[in-house]
């Protein structure tokens, strides 16, 4: 993904608890993107890739910062993709888009639906292309996204979402 100084990427991955930090460190620096796990109330700024910390929900606030929570897991997941996406819809951000990839449960489907209903760009990985199709299938059962893609098209999908807002 080419570096964009006015774009922030937020990654929400289901992963094991009690393994802290290593995700951001493992990915390190890709091109000029600064990859990090945000702390609570971190201001969201461009040129960064934020990874939801293990064992916390990650939410965005209207004022442009993250909030974390240790509320109960949603869809057995913390962080939950639904919680993140719903917070984007609630915050009524003017410019946002979401892509849902491979996953083993239905987390994210409802959040994607809400993003779609609120008029945001939504992209869902083709179930046939996904390592585990459950998650994209759950979303596609609820609505028709802006587009479907295979993993090697993800960058183009992101650029397409950005082009809508420039």
């Amino acid at each position: 993904m080419p570096y964009k100084e006015n774009v922030a990427i937020v990654l929400c991955l289901h992963r094991l608890r009690n393994i802290r930090m290593n995700m951001a460190e493992a990915i390190g620096k890709v091109q000029r993107w600064h990859i990090l796990e945000p702390d609570d109330k971190t201001l969201i700024t461009g040129g960064k890739v934020y990874i939801a910390p293990a064992d916390y929900h990650l939410l965005v606030e209207r004022e442009g910062y993250f909030s974390l929570s240790v509320d109960e897991p949603v869809n057995f997941s913390r962080p939950s993709i639904d919680v993140l996406l719903e917070s984007i819809v609630q915050a009524r951000w003017a410019r946002a888009g979401a892509a849902l990839l491979s996953g083993a449960n239905c987390d994210g489907a409802l959040g994607m639906l809400k993003m779609h209903q609120a008029g945001y760009f939504t992209a869902v990985q083709l179930p046939t292309d996904a390592e585990i199709p459950t998650m994209p299938e759950a979303a596609l059962a609820l609505f028709k996204p802006t587009c479907q893609f295979s993993a090697n098209e993800l960058v183009q999908v992101c650029l397409r979402a950005l082009s809508l807002y420039t």
């Binding site: 909030s67 929570s69 509320d71 919680v83």
Partner: peptide, 8 residues
């Protein structure tokens, strides 16, 4: 914080 309060 509004996002998590609304959710709760």
């Amino acid at each position: 914080a509004p996002a998590s309060l609304k959710r709760r």
